[in-house]
């Protein structure tokens, strides 16, 4: 993809097999019907084609262009603008560690660093078994649960390096993993289908993990006269007092030397190196 080709222009992308195309066309019709103007369906359609192949392929872009009567260039311009659309094959589970300022300071940098070492992959890379793609992500609106890790866009709150390593080990071993807020994990492809606007049909998925996370209730508890300041601990920490427990994982210490944010990811979020979305450093060139 990064090769420079001279001469023959790239041939049009191949089409989906007929049965796949037929099924996706049916879904596309349903998506387009939600909007007064068909082009509004483009973002959900890109989620839809991502749910088919795990990333947005040229074939997927061609499909979007055809059902919306756009050019593939118009679709490509949109597909490359948004960070949730992957441009290369990736794992079943996208593990995103928040390294925006607040989570980074509270421990997100250390978690990201340790996960890279533990999994032997860098930012936006996938483990050899194809299970886990590691990424650093931006603020995900859960700062009162910092440090936060998202897996397939479900919340794993109040993480430590130890809890995060255990979680990726469980994912790779095929053990069931439950988020602190959200439903039992499904694969990245299945998640993309929900994002395309097709509700999660698994029984009980909506109800899983209860009404609100503990930090969300901090003020309400005080207002109701529960005097102890609510302290947030990982929700599934066995044997730990849910309120006020000083919980940290065994051996979950940050790395010995972690001088500054320069250990943190310097590249911008996932994209292929040929199409950088952010500042290009000298090292990149």
């Amino acid at each position: 993809m990064t090769d420079v080709s001279i001469g023959m222009p790239q041939l049009p992308a191949p089409d989906y097999p007929a049965d796949v195309r037929e099924r996706l066309t049916e879904d596309a019709r349903e998506i387009i019907a939600r909007y007064p103007d068909s082009r509004s369906a483009l973002l959900p359609l890109l989620h839809l084609v991502q749910s088919e192949e795990g990333h947005v392929t040229r074939t997927g872009q061609r499909f979007c262009a055809e059902v919306l009567d756009l050019t593939t260039a118009e679709v490509n311009a949109v597909a490359t603008f948004y960070s949730m659309y992957r441009r290369k094959p990736s794992g079943d589970y996208q593990v995103g560690v928040c390294t925006n300022t607040l989570c980074a300071v509270m421990g997100g940098d250390a978690i990201f660093e340790e996960l890279q070492q533990h999994l032997g992959v860098g930012n936006s890379e996938t483990t050899e078994d194809g299970k886990v793609t590691l990424e650093h992500i931006e603020c995900n609106a859960a700062c009162d649960f910092a440090p936060v890790v998202m897996v397939n866009w479900e919340f794993f709150d109040n993480q430590t390096p130890g809890s995060a390593k255990q979680m990726v080990d469980d994912l790779r071993a095929g053990r069931e993993v439950e988020p602190t807020r959200g439903a039992k994990l499904c694969t990245f492809k299945e998640t993309a289908r929900i994002l395309a606007g097709f509700p999660d049909e698994r029984t009980g998925a909506v109800a899983e993990s209860g009404g609100a996370g503990p930090a969300s209730l901090a003020g309400l508890r005080l207002a109701k006269g529960e005097s102890a300041p609510p302290r947030v601990a990982p929700q599934r920490s066995a044997g730990a007092d849910a309120l006020g427990a000083d919980v940290t994982a065994e051996g979950a210490q940050p790395p010995e030397t972690h001088p500054s944010s320069h250990d943190a990811p310097q590249d911008t979020a996932a994209s292929d190196p040929a199409h950088q979305a952010g500042p290009v450093t000298e090292e990149d060139q």
Binding site: V105, M106, G107, D109, G162, A164, V247, A249, A252
Partner: peptide
């Protein structure tokens, strides 16, 4: 500054097992 001092677990001495 030492970034390790800013983490949530920096000041904690009790090490409990967390099953994540």
């Amino acid at each position: 500054f030492d970034p390790a001092a800013s983490t949530v677990w920096a000041d904690k001495t009790a090490h409990l097992e967390v099953k994540a």
